[in-house]
Design a protein around this nucleic acid. Sequence first.
DNA 1: AATAATTTTTAGATTAACCTAAAAAATAAA
DNA 2: TTTATTTTTTAGGTTAATCTAAAAATTATT
Lengths: 221, 221
Amino acid sequence: MAISFTEENYLKVIHRLSEATSEDISTNAVAELMQTKAASVTDMLRRLAEKGWVNYQKYQGVRLSAEGEKIALSIVRKHRLWEVFLVDKMGFNWDEVHEIAEQLEHIESDQLIHKLDEYLGFPKTDPHGDPIPNKDGILPELAYSHLSDIKANKTCKLMGVAQDSAVFLQLLTKLHLSLGAKLDIQEINEFDRSIFVSINEAAPIFISHEVAKNILVKILA
Amino acid sequence: MAISFTEENYLKVIHRLSEATSEDISTNAVAELMQTKAASVTDMLRRLAEKGWVNYQKYQGVRLSAEGEKIALSIVRKHRLWEVFLVDKMGFNWDEVHEIAEQLEHIESDQLIHKLDEYLGFPKTDPHGDPIPNKDGILPELAYSHLSDIKANKTCKLMGVAQDSAVFLQLLTKLHLSLGAKLDIQEINEFDRSIFVSINEAAPIFISHEVAKNILVKILA
DNA sequence: AATAATTTTTAGATTAACCTAAAAAATAAA
DNA sequence: TTTATTTTTTAGGTTAATCTAAAAATTATT
């Protein structure tokens, strides 16, 4: 069945919200991410339900059906593969690719995506450390910790970010925090939970709790 | 001013029709290429004229304005650069790329197109030999001849095709006719203007006038 | 030049995606 | 457990892009 760009975006947004919770997703939450009004969302949810892509009961919120989930994951897959392309092949920075990938994710050609995947060397994650679903829509669960949850004197590796906003990513770049960086947590300040951390053996720098919350790490020792 | 995919496609179609003639373009001609009805075209032409992208007088046909021409050329540029990408980098055949490029041509990012151009080595033509407009919308005039117009005993080089349809391109591939091939015209048959031609020094093969009409060549000797 | 044929435009509807304002349902507070 | 607040839905409209059918303009033919 044919699907519009708008419908794809709704499914993607519902999918994103569903990752954070096991509850049903509220109309307002969708409206906020879609940058539209609740009334418009109600309209669309009714139509998505008719097409069998979501389960939706008036006033009870919405969830993706199995088919809707499959569609959403294929869009996420395309988005993330294109992001890898933009950074690895086209030389964009990791904070510049989101908008362009938002457009490219709607290009329809299974063959193209398969060739792109191959061309990129079957990457496992996008430039922000987010896992890339495979063609069957299996999304490997990467169970990383938030840097804000790690104890002092631990060593870890920066595996991803919990947020793709350009301002956040630019800040990380300024702080020399990039994917794969080795982080030694020197001290956690009780006052505001800010952290002194050494990046790749360099002199320790100061990081706010807010930043640490959005950094995903793997504990090494 | 914002432009929709549909508007972009109309401008592209009007541009294509304008290349073949210096006359104004008729509503019906646009309707046929856009695969829509004349009434819908009239509607759209009125709106394109309001936006200043075409000059249009009721019943008198339509032409692109300078600004419309610029937009059309930027779409053609994107389309052809993406075609080069699909063939050179992704390994598609020349008869497989049109549909996908029709989608990719609407991706909006000057930076991306610039980087893509660079990545591809600033190609001058697409995989069908069509010239790629530069970023200022200058389209190099490649004055090639149709194979059907060449005299017997001449040697020429296959520089492009006058048609991008998959069936035509697949036929050329079967006949081992690809861009750059050296063609020796052995004999032109009076009966139906079919041609005996030797491709890259191989034994001569038989080609219909219809095929020859759609092959563009440069005369070598 | 008058009539016929064709092309183009207008008129009026339809669909997807949105909107505002008001009504209804669900949730929270007194 | 009423009342107040918040959330969600309905009702009714708008816009872009399309359609069909009918009217108007242009072009071709006698």
